[in-house]
Structure formats: structure tokens, C-alpha cells
Design a protein around this nucleic acid. Sequence first.
DNA 1: GCTGCTGTTGGCGG
DNA 2: CCCGCCAACAGCAG
Length: 284
Amino acid sequence: MPELPEVESTVRELKKNILGDFLQDVWSEKERKDLKRVEGKRIEEIRRFGKNISFFLDNGEILLIHLRMTGHLLLGNWELKKNSATEKEEWWSKEPILQDKRNGFLRVIFFLASGKQVALSDPRKFAKVSLLQKKEMEKIIQELGPNPLSIKKKEFKKLFEGRKKEIKPLLMDQAFLAGIGNIYAAEILFKAKVNPCKKASLLKEEEVERIYYFTREILKKGIKLKGDSTSDYRLPSGKKGGYQECHLVYKRDNLPCFECKEKIKRTVVGSRGTYYCPSCQKKE
DNA sequence: GCTGCTGTTGGCGG
DNA sequence: CCCGCCAACAGCAG
């Protein structure tokens, strides 16, 4: 699932390849006349806000992409061919990138002046692509919580004041902190030795401090390993990230805890699958 | 082949 | 305001 480390890895790889390039043409599976406005525009900046990817264009508009659950962006080289049998358009790749099935669900393709292409592959079609004015973008940024990688400890601790919610759904609340999702929330709370359903208001100061420290440590590790490809996420190159190789608790139910050998459990907290060690992450 | 699970976000209703 | 539930959708395990 694309969370902060996956989106950050995507943005970094895109910046290396297409910063300053010009958008020339757009193809989309669903009719998107509005996206035609990007044609001829230069990509002046590419930035991450929480789990959002934003392309700042030279006319002041912002192309915003949210990958939701199964979306990911690919750099590639495809050509469009007609399938006469169904009259449906099909994409064929010249590169081995599409040999990975996850990379074959192309919904939108941006053609750049350099000849490069950026495609959105998204099996479940949940990803959101929109073209925003500056004001609309500012509103989105304003509604997001702080960046967990830049907030200071003092400010972080303040966020918890008066919050009654369970800690895991709170960490995943994008208005509380921007960028944490189900996988990293579980990993962070395991390292911090905090039970995922403990009410935030009941957390001791040391617990909040550990959450602060390990939020940063785990997210940075996620970025270093270029994200988690447990599910559909791939880098723009089409390759997998590496975080799925070092899960501490996520998807490890019934396997021994790396700290105490107790069996990892799966429960549901805030209607999300939640993995934790019942012995290392006691509620009291 | 069918059912239910997966998990992000927004919208709805209690 | 806050919570839970569901829909958007499609692949996939059982």
C-alpha cells in the first residue's frame, strides 16, 4: 500500500527522470477532457504531501495524484495498438516492465516531450488524478497533519493532548500526521512496544517519545528500502521495494515475535487488520 | 465458481 | 463532533 515511504520513493525517482520535462499528451482509459489542460506545460517541481504526489506546472496549476491502495506510477515506453476483435485498446510494452502483472493495469499515461512516459497502473481503479488550482492545492495541504519526518519532538508530543482515539487509527489519521498507513503503523507500534488499541490519552510520556522516535526510524527505513511491495506497489522503474522482506509484525500472524518468540496476533482495530505481539505490546 | 478479505479515503447515518 | 459502516473496485485465497 502506498504510504509515505512508497510515495517518497516514487517522487525521488520521478524527479531524477522527468523534472523540467514538458507534458505533451495524455491518454486515459476513462474520458478525462480536463486533463488535456496539462498539454504543453513544463513540470517545474515534484513534491510529496502526505501520500499525495504533486506536479507543479508552469501555468500555476498542480497535477495531483493520490495512489490510494493499488496505484503506482511507472516510467516506461509503451505503444498503443488496436485490438480488432474487441475494439478495445491494449497496451504493449517494449520493455520487460509489464512482465510483472501488477504493472499492467494502465489507466492513465502522460507522454513527455523527451519521449519518456509516465503511466498510472492501478488494478482496482481507486487512485485519484486531478488538476488543481493553487487555492485548491493549498486547502489540501492545510487539511493534512504535519510531516512525521520534519516535526520536532516537542510539537509531536503536543499533538497527543486530548486525543481520545486508539493510537493506531490516530497514527493513520492523515489530519493528525500525514503519510502513515496500515503497514507502517503496525511496525511503529511494535517497535515502540505500545498496544495498537490503547487510547492515545492514556499513553505515558515515554510511550509517546518512543512512538516519535520509531515513527521516524521506521519511515526512514521504509524509504531506504524504497518502499513495501507486499501488494501492488512498484517503483517507477517497475521494480519492487524491499520493506516486505523485513516486516516485524505486519502479515506475520502466528509467526514468532522477533523479540520474545510469542506468536504474533491479528485483530481488527478501527475496522483495519492489525498485527501485534500480545506479549511485547501489552495494554497496561 | 462463489464468497469474503484486502485497505485508502470520503460520505453517510446514528 | 465522533464513531462505525459502506462504497468505490478487482484480484485473489480458500
